[in-house]
Design a protein around this nucleic acid. Sequence first.
DNA 1: CTAGCATTCAAACGTTCGTTTGAACCGTGG
DNA 2: CCACGGTTCAAACGAACGTTTGAATGCTAG
Lengths: 223, 223
Amino acid sequence: MPLRAVRPQHETRTRILDAAEELFMQHGFGGTSMRLLTAKAGVNLAAVNYHFGSKDALIEAVFRRRLDPMNQARLAGLDALEARAQPPAPEEIIRAFLSPTLELVADAKGGGRNFVRLLGRTYTEPARAIRQLIGQMYAPVMDRYKSALARALPQMPLEELVWRMHFMFGTLAYTLAATDTVQLIAGCKPEDRYDARLLEARLTAFLHAGLNAPLGNVIRKAA
Amino acid sequence: MPLRAVRPQHETRTRILDAAEELFMQHGFGGTSMRLLTAKAGVNLAAVNYHFGSKDALIEAVFRRRLDPMNQARLAGLDALEARAQPPAPEEIIRAFLSPTLELVADAKGGGRNFVRLLGRTYTEPARAIRQLIGQMYAPVMDRYKSALARALPQMPLEELVWRMHFMFGTLAYTLAATDTVQLIAGCKPEDRYDARLLEARLTAFLHAGLNAPLGNVIRKAA
DNA sequence: CTAGCATTCAAACGTTCGTTTGAACCGTGG
DNA sequence: CCACGGTTCAAACGAACGTTTGAATGCTAG
């Protein structure tokens, strides 16, 4: 069993996944044809169906390759926080959730940045099957983080917490997608757009403040 | 010049716009075929090309019908705030921006809710032409609100303000899209999902806190 | 060396897409 | 009454799509 054949064995798969990640980010799923995709990957048109079965299965593989490790890291980060003596602060929990994503943002060469932008867009994907796929992959993570935040913020009604997590998630998703549709980011220094450390500091400050916003108005209106 | 013909004159156009709004929201632009669209609208297949010229022009018309009045209302709201004696507070500015959108959320019958969800998704639309269209329609509004917030928060660096506006916009967009990809909203009372007053209270509290988050960490990291 | 297997390849399949065509329809003004 | 402009209609157009096919290729094991 020679070793030299181990890598090239899956090289075509990897080339397809890399090309798909970038093209899906640029043009969306429907806007990326198999012909364009295989041409960019430098493989035959039939290679996608041979290696993945179908275009839909390729889409799923693109997400699984990045999202499974990312969410595992999120769970591990929470495990580490909860293993300590004192209970984790809300801000620490937010950071544990954010950092696996922001590590990908910092990874320009490996294509992680492409994937993160793709992911940000996919949260609002119309195709039901894709939304379901993402939802399934996130479900255990969201459960754990919801419980952790509920323990860290015992004074907050669970329903309000759920909404604020939703807001936080939206901020992250939109920031990552970073399509600059509303031409805001155009007004900031370009080199800051993908400075992961700076972005993390800005996001954490914003989200932590939002999560801990006073409850007064909401409770009064909800009553 | 008989009056009875004035309304039916554009009935086909309206029927197409209504059907397009709902189908684009459900299946996206690429996922909505002209045949499905015209069937739902109860018009002939060729009607879209006759009345709008092309599918792309129809997409633009769908957005112009709702977005132009919405952004005009945003500008009018800001005018009203700035016409008063004392300068407007940041929270008031946020509310002036949010309320035209939330009025559409409350409009279930007229299809405004459909449009708002469509809009939330389109901020992250891969197709460049559509993003540009939305960006153009938002540009004057964002300029005015950026200036207003900068005056209301003189101590905040402009660059930081731009990022926080970006975060705020993301929160709104994702909340409106409300695809529940991450299965969070599933955990809240269903009737609250479209209670515009409740949503406005929750959003305003969250966004106001985020906008006024302490600057310490960011400035230190940026130095 | 050869048989066997995984992979690659060019070509074609049937379907669906947005758009166009030219005739039919119909209320209105001359 | 007729003729005309705006509108609707069924039918067809060429292009692009995802997928399938069957032969060619190249490495591996016996």
